[in-house]
Design a protein around this nucleic acid. Structure first.
Length: 176
DNA sequence: GTCATAACGTTCT
DNA sequence: AGAACGTTATGAC
């Protein structure tokens, strides 16, 4: 279900999609594109220390710090259809929630591969997105993205009570 | 529930 | 050294 939505959004830019169109005119194979495929087509995410050493943030023009990569690495683990919080990430990193927020604010890999729109504040208030906090066009975008992933907000922009139990992702793997 | 405020870690002047 | 930040905990109403 979520997979099909991903495919539709990435329709014009996903290699697998294009290939299946050109080589399979009659019956279309089942779509297989998922987050990672779309992500690779949008913003390549450096994995090795070597690549990261001189990675530049295309928004700020500055070098992406090791801490920022730690935050992005964890954010990367939040599956579609789930959410997490600044606090959960900072706990896993033994850092602070503000530091995490500051790193996410300048996330150059948004919305994919690093889905920072899935990170909310500790009370599951919608929080911020792309430098905005609380409300604005960017927040509307964040809410819409999450809605498409099955996360619904109430009139005060908190995640609806029904979803609170099973949607919060906390099982971060600490790499290093 | 609201509001004020101190404390937090990281990053930039 | 000081300020800014997509935060949080606490305490007072």
């Amino acid at each position: 279900m979520p997979v099909e939505r991903s495919v539709k959004r990435a329709h014009s830019s996903t290699a697998k999609e294009l290939k299946s169109h050109s080589s399979d005119t009659k019956k279309l194979a089942k779509p297989v594109a998922v987050d990672e495929d779309v992500a690779a087509a949008v913003h390549p995410y450096p994995k090795s220390a070597k690549e990261r050493a001189d990675a530049i943030n295309r928004h700020t023009g500055r070098k992406i710090t090791p801490f920022q990569f730690q935050v992005y690495d964890l954010c990367l683990q939040i599956p579609e259809g789930q959410i997490s919080t600044y606090k959960h990430i900072s706990d896993a990193l033994k850092s602070s929630s503000r530091a995490v927020g500051q790193a996410l604010k300048v996330n150059p890999y948004a919305p994919l591969p690093v889905p920072c729109h899935r990170v909310l504040d500790s009370k599951l208030y919608i929080g911020g997105y792309m430098g905005q906090w609380g409300e604005g066009e960017k927040i509307d975008d964040k809410r819409a993205k999450l809605y498409h992933e099955g996360i619904v907000f109430d009139e005060t922009d908190h995640v609806v009570a029904k979803a609170r139990n099973n949607a919060v992702f906390t099982d971060f793997k600490i790499l290093e």
